[in-house]
Design a protein around this nucleic acid. Structure first.
Length: 189
DNA sequence: AAGTAGATGTTCT
DNA sequence: GAACATCTACTTA
């Protein structure tokens, strides 16, 4: 039986939690898969939504860890983050890609696309495949509709890191993490 | 395979 | 009014 992640599992720094989440399983209403790509964001980081302090949009990231921060990006895409660290720190982890394992038919229907590899390969694609929207803003990750399972401890996870994607500030930080060799990442590392 | 343009709407200056 | 934690379709090779 896999271990369900609890609030304290998200209490670390954003890069640490982002790294640990690789290999975990994320389901939303039973649909999802294995997390294969994440990015860390923190208040100290000029690329983060929280860098300039609390606003109406980012308030969930200043709340308790283990909750969802959802935002609407480029006028088109819903993106999902896990709040981490502790209340008031404005830290989070962007879920960038999954290896689809459950609810493939529903994800294909939502995405209007067959190719398993492209179902969840990017934060906007993950949002669409999992049916994420503002209704999920601020919800706790340790109960439905969310399920987050820890990676199988018997199967060590090889993690690679590199610079984050699509940002114009703090581009040098190696705060993007991925499952080594996975073909389900949004871009090669 | 690689690069570019356009979509589309919220947030912040 | 600019920027934006992106994606798709279309071009050019």
């Amino acid at each position: 039986m896999p271990r369900t992640l609890k609030s304290k599992d998200f209490a670390g720094d954003a890069p640490e939690v982002a790294r640990r989440l690789i290999g975990a399983t994320l389901l939303v209403d039973g649909v999802g898969g294995v997390i294969v790509e994440t990015e860390a964001y923190d208040m100290s980081d000029a690329a983060a939504h929280t860098h300039r302090g609390p606003t109406e949009r980012n308030r969930a990231m200043f709340g308790p860890p283990g909750h969802a921060y959802v935002y609407f990006n480029y006028g088109l895409h819903w993106c999902l983050n896990f709040v981490c660290r502790e209340e008031g720190h404005g830290a989070g982890v962007l879920i960038r890609a999954l290896q689809p394992t459950q609810g493939l038919a529903q994800m294909r229907a939502r995405r209007g696309l067959e190719d398993e590899r492209l179902l969840c390969a990017g934060p906007g694609r993950v949002g669409q495949a999992l049916g994420i929207d503002k209704a999920f803003y601020g919800l706790p990750l340790d109960r439905p509709p969310f399920v987050v399972h820890a990676p199988d401890p018997a199967q060590p996870v090889a993690v690679v890191a590199g610079p984050r994607i699509g940002i114009s500030k703090a581009q040098a930080l190696p705060w993007r993490f991925g499952l080594a060799g996975s073909r389900y990442v949004s871009r090669k590392f």
